[in-house]
C-alpha cells in the first residue's frame, strides 16, 4: 500500500488525481478494513494536516465548515450550536468521544452511509458541498450528492473541501433526534432532522424534515401541504404520518422494517 501525507491542498489533489483515496479521521475507512467489509485502498493520502480544511467561518449569508472539522468541534462551536442546532445535535451523537474527536464532517458526508447522523440536518439546512480536483471546483447540494448506500455523485479525483450552510432566516430553528438502543457507541436505528421557519403570525413559512436510516440515502419528506398551517399537535401528527409513509426502510439486525417505519414517524414529530 502506498501512503503519503499531504502538506498542501494541491498535494492532496495531485494524489487524488493519480488514484489515491483521502483519509482524515479514518473512522470509516479503517474500521471497515478491520471488520473485513472493504480492504484499505491501494493508495491513501492523509489530509488531516491541511489547515485550510479545519476552519469554521461565518458570513452574513452562510456558515462555511471545513471538511476536516471534527464532530467534537461542531458540537461545541458557537456558530453551529446557535443557528445550526440540528447539526450540533447530530454531531454530539456520532459514535463515541473517540470517534467524535477523530471523525470529520467531510468524511461523514463522503462516506454516504444512509445511517449517518449529520446527513439529515445537512439536508434540512440546505447544505451543499464544495468539490475540488486538479480540474477545478464545483458545488453540489448534499441532497444530490448521495445516490445510494456508500455512493456519491462525485468522481474519484474530487475532494470535498468545505460544507456550506446558508444562514437560516429569522424565526428559524432546527433539531435532530434519533432512536438509539444505548447511549454511546451507537448507530442510528432511525433518526429525523427538522428545520422550520415561522411567519409573522406564527404559521409555518417553511418546513423541512429529513430521515436517517430508512432508505438507501437520507430521505427528504414531502411536506408542502403543511406550509401556512399553524404548528399544532395535529400538524405534528401529520408530520409523523407523512414521514412514516414516505420512508422505505429495510429489515436488518438492528430493527425490522415495520418497527423502523413506525419509529421514524415518532422521531419526526418529537420535540
Amino acid at each position: 500500500m502506498q501512503f503519503s501525507i499531504a502538506t498542501t491542498l494541491d498535494e492532496a489533489l495531485d494524489a487524488l488525481a493519480t488514484g489515491a483515496c483521502p483519509i482524515a479521521g479514518g473512522t470509516d475507512l479503517v474500521v471497515a478494513a478491520r471488520h473485513g467489509k472493504a480492504p484499505l485502498p491501494d493508495s491513501v493520502v492523509a489530509i488531516d494536516r491541511l489547515s485550510e480544511l479545519q476552519t469554521i467561518s461565518s458570513t452574513a449569508d452562510a456558515t462555511i465548515i471545513g471538511a476536516g472539522v471534527t464532530h467534537a468541534r461542531l458540537m461545541t462551536n458557537d456558530a453551529v450550536t446557535g443557528a445550526l442546532a440540528g447539526l450540533a445535535d447530530a454531531s454530539a451523537l456520532v459514535g463515541s468521544p473517540a470517534t467524535r474527536n477523530l471523525g470529520t464532517l467531510g468524511g461523514n458526508v463522503m462516506n454516504a452511509s444512509p445511517a449517518m447522523d449529520t446527513g439529515a440536518p445537512l439536508v434540512v439546512l440546505n447544505a451543499s458541498v464544495t468539490l475540488r480536483s486538479t480540474r477545478g471546483e464545483r458545488s453540489l447540494p448534499v441532497a444530490e450528492l448521495w445516490v445510494g448506500p456508500g455512493q456519491t455523485a462525485t468522481r474519484p479525483d474530487e475532494l470535498c473541501t468545505v460544507i456550506v450552510i446558508p444562514t437560516p432566516r429569522v424565526r428559524s430553528g432546527s433539531a435532530y433526534v434519533r432512536l438509539e438502543y444505548r447511549r454511546a457507541m451507537e448507530i442510528a436505528v432511525v433518526g429525523a432532522a427538522a428545520a422550520i421557519t415561522l411567519g409573522d403570525d406564527g404559521s409555518i413559512e417553511a418546513l423541512a424534515v429529513a430521515l436517517t436510516a430508512v432508505g438507501p440515502t437520507i430521505l427528504s419528506v414531502e411536506l408542502a401541504e403543511l406550509v401556512g398551517h399553524p404548528m399544532t399537535p395535529e400538524t405534528l401528527e401529520r408530520v409523523a404520518t407523512l414521514a412514516s409513509t414516505q420512508s422505505t426502510p429495510i429489515s436488518d439486525g438492528r430493527a425490522s422494517d415495520r418497527y423502523r417505519r413506525h419509529a421514524v414517524g415518532i422521531m419526526a414529530k418529537r420535540r
Partner: peptide
C-alpha cells in the same frame, strides 16, 4: 460477532 453490533451496556448507560 463484533462489539458494534453485539450491544453491551456502556459507561454512559
Amino acid at each position: 460477532a463484533g462489539l458494534l453490533e453485539y450491544k453491551l451496556q456502556t459507561a454512559a448507560d
